[in-house]
Design a protein around this nucleic acid. Sequence first.
DNA 1: TAAGTGTTACGAACGTGTAAGTAAGTCAAT
DNA 2: ATTGACTTACTTACACGTTCGTAACACTTA
Lengths: 223, 223
Amino acid sequence: MSTTDTQSNAKTISRADKARKPRASTAATRERIIEAAMAVFANRGYNNSSLLEIADQAEMTHAGVLHHFGSKDNLLTAVLAHRDDADVAELHDHKLPTGAAMLEHLVHTARANAKRPGIVQAYAVLSVESVTENHPAQNFFRDRLAGLRVIVSDALRAVVSDNVPQHQINQAASLIIATMDGLQVQWLLEPDVIDMAAGVETTITAVVAQLNAGRPGGDATQS
Amino acid sequence: MSTTDTQSNAKTISRADKARKPRASTAATRERIIEAAMAVFANRGYNNSSLLEIADQAEMTHAGVLHHFGSKDNLLTAVLAHRDDADVAELHDHKLPTGAAMLEHLVHTARANAKRPGIVQAYAVLSVESVTENHPAQNFFRDRLAGLRVIVSDALRAVVSDNVPQHQINQAASLIIATMDGLQVQWLLEPDVIDMAAGVETTITAVVAQLNAGRPGGDATQS
DNA sequence: TAAGTGTTACGAACGTGTAAGTAAGTCAAT
DNA sequence: ATTGACTTACTTACACGTTCGTAACACTTA
């Protein structure tokens, strides 16, 4: 986010406030490149992708891509940040649901994901690739996972009985997230065998029941 | 398994059965290379690994590595096949446990894995990388996942009540495997926060309970 | 000598990033 | 309104490193 150099600050208008539209609308071009990069990263992984292929798909030369993003690393972070604007924004800013609604939202997300294998693959591949040495997206995915754990933990907390210890809730959150991620990989390899949404739903139900099992007074709130 | 070409057939001894140790014992050398490759693949992913680095760690030149394995692709399949000899063999040939014992074995495996991050990382990285285009390990991991699903399904079948429908068992098996894989990634990124063994145990308990919940007469067999 | 292990040396391809040039547009001043 | 200074978007060309794989040679053992 902060590492980016040129423009980006909303408008970059320093001397011209009236009509901003140089040649091909820099914002639109960046978007085009980012989407091309997303597709190529998904199909090839980050390391195995080349700027040439990305540029081809964006209908430019690879030098043109570098003009906009400076380096391949920067392009990757831009891709990840961009997706967050569209996806996590839906969770964060947009008054993310709480409690049971949030858990249902996870199932909904899994169902939606089944219709966009490209994005699923990009995130699956990049997130795991990020555990390799000096990978530029390492912090991004670490933070993302941590954030997700908090969100899911909070949702679980609202759904289970009060006396469930926090560490159990945290663990349960990790498990739910792990299941979602693991299922994605299985689904990518065998889309016909795996039903991501059903799997996530079953897992949530099972884990919530498990949390409430220890103590009475809990309420499942699941179907 | 079947896709491999050279060697693999147990010993490779074709002309000298008595004293095998020309200069550095070809089998031992191969082993050394495979272990170096495993380590490098784990740290860098397959695509981002170089034969040079692998050769360095095996104390050879990269041409020496190629002399033994012919190509980088072949080396990868050899690495994967080799690990299967040591890991899955423990499950397959070695009278793999059945039913509840098998499920406990999964927990045990998770605990053991927490002590060998290198191997965990290699499998995590390679398995996800394998979903990318034309990846040489694609079939390997697809088959591996399918095999695992069968093993876990069988174990679950032995543990839950008879009238649980098979498709629920299959789904549960997928979920357990997904959780194990997903937890590995989280653990690789934050080893201190994630307890793989505990997570797997919780998941198994929860999923088994869930399976038995529908019908009476089930017995959990879990602690 | 024969066979196998391993080395040095090399070729060809590819990938990232830089440099320099061109086209297209904006702004300021006439 | 036209001109000239300057910026922006993008291209072609290239420098430079890295990589896989091959070929030819050397050493060791039998």
